[in-house]
Design a protein around this nucleic acid. Sequence first.
DNA 1: TCATACAATTTGATTATCAAATTTAATATA
DNA 2: TATATTAAATTTGATAATCAAATTGTATGA
Lengths: 145, 145
Amino acid sequence: MPDFGVNKIVDKLTHELLHFFNSFSSWESSVVRSSDLSVSEAHAIEILGQFGQMNMKGLAQKLGVTTGTTTVTVDRLEKKDYARRESTREDRRVNLINLTEKGCRAFDEHHKFHLALTEQMISVLAEEEIYQFLTILKKINSEIF
Amino acid sequence: MPDFGVNKIVDKLTHELLHFFNSFSSWESSVVRSSDLSVSEAHAIEILGQFGQMNMKGLAQKLGVTTGTTTVTVDRLEKKDYARRESTREDRRVNLINLTEKGCRAFDEHHKFHLALTEQMISVLAEEEIYQFLTILKKINSEIF
DNA sequence: TCATACAATTTGATTATCAAATTTAATATA
DNA sequence: TATATTAAATTTGATAATCAAATTGTATGA
């Protein structure tokens, strides 16, 4: 027997999630377009800044693209001096990708925008909703994504 | 005088938001790649299915891209019979974009994935958190995005 | 009527992406 | 030890996505 109350909330939540995601997406690209970086370059810097150095495969996974695509992106980041490859002794097939100092600065710069957006979100929420939001996102991130 | 309690929660929330957004993003592209549609085509169908027919400019805005890009996307959707342009009598410059029957089916198909994802999210939340999440997203969407 | 504004398209270039093939290195096993 | 297998990264060849700027066709206000 269907529970219409629950079904309705699934629809509503889906709608709000889509709105949220699409808006976040446009916001992100407009922020990036105002910088020296392309969207995929910025995305890679964001991952590297957040998680620290990693190999091509890991970066590709985090970016959700193939390693071929990631090779191209990292090529460009190296050319522009935002990142560099470092080969490891343990396994000479592996390249560890690091942010350069310029890359770290770009990360901080970009991250400030994210912090500002979060502040904006917080400003429209009640005190307890802020903590609820954090709790909810943590649960979803750890158990689903 | 800085409030360290609040600053810390901004950082945490930003971190979780980024994780959430990036995961949602990869999820979306892997869902799309398993279909006949490209990412931008799917995105356009998603907007049209959600909001109904709209003109090129409106669609471009929702997609967060230029009208030139949108023209190309709609060209492809028309070629594949997912959407069609309809010119209006009131203003012959304007094209209203509609989903075809095939386009509507594709939207439903894709939307089912979104509903399933939302169900998954709901399944890890407590009853009251589901409503909190909806309330929070509504506030952010209406007041910020 | 005519200048201005506007919606959409086109143009020309760059960037993003994939799947598949290739290269190079590590590892297991016969 | 030789050799087959697996694995990381790159390259290749093709297509898709995107932008800014120029263009086209239409509306509208002075």
